[in-house]
Amino acid sequence: MNPIDRSPSRLSSWISASAALVALGASGFYSWGALVAGTLGLLLLLSGLVRGSNAAVTVGAFGLFLGGVTAGVQSAPTVPVLVSVTFAVLAWDAGGNAISIGRQLGREADTIRIEVTHVAASGLVGVVTVGLGYGLYRTGTGEQPVAALVFSVLAAVLLIEALD
C-alpha cells in the first residue's frame, strides 16, 4: 500500500556511476584542471542519481566531459582522453535512462532487460566510434594536407548543425 518508489533504477544507476568513475580516472591523472572539473562533475552526477534529477546528471556528465577535454588540452595521450569523453557520455546516457525508468516504472518493476539492452547499444556505439576515430588517426597522420582536415571539420560542424 506504499506509494510507488520512483527513484532511478538500480542497475543503470550503478552503471552510470561506474562509467563516471572511469571517466574521472582516465583524465584526472593528467591535469589538475581535469581532476577538479571531473570530481565536481562526478559528485553532481551521483547526487543527481540519488535524487532522480536529470539536470544534475546532465551537468555532472558535462563536467566530466570538460575534465576529459582539459586533460586533452594539457597534452594528455589520446587514448585516456577518448576513454574519458566516451565514458562521460555513457554515464550521462545510463543516468538519464535510469531516471526515466524510475519515473515510468519505479524500482519494484523488473527492468533489467531494457537497461542492459540500452547500455549495451550505447556502449557498442562508443567502442565503434572510438575505434574508427582512433584507427583513422593512427593510419592517416602527417600524410594529408591541412586543408583536408579543415574541410572535413567544417563539414562535420555544418552537418551536425543541419541535423540538429
Binding site: 576529459g68 589520446t78 566510434t129 574508427l132
Partner: peptide, 22 residues
C-alpha cells in the same frame, strides 16, 4: 572540434569525433 582546432591537439579533436558518433 572547436577546442581541438584552437589548441591544435589531435586527442581533443578525436574526442569531438566521439561526439559525432553518438
Amino acid at each position: 572540434i572547436g577546442v581541438g582546432i584552437l589548441v591544435e591537439q589531435p586527442a581533443v579533436l578525436l574526442a569531438g569525433a566521439v561526439g559525432i558518433g553518438f
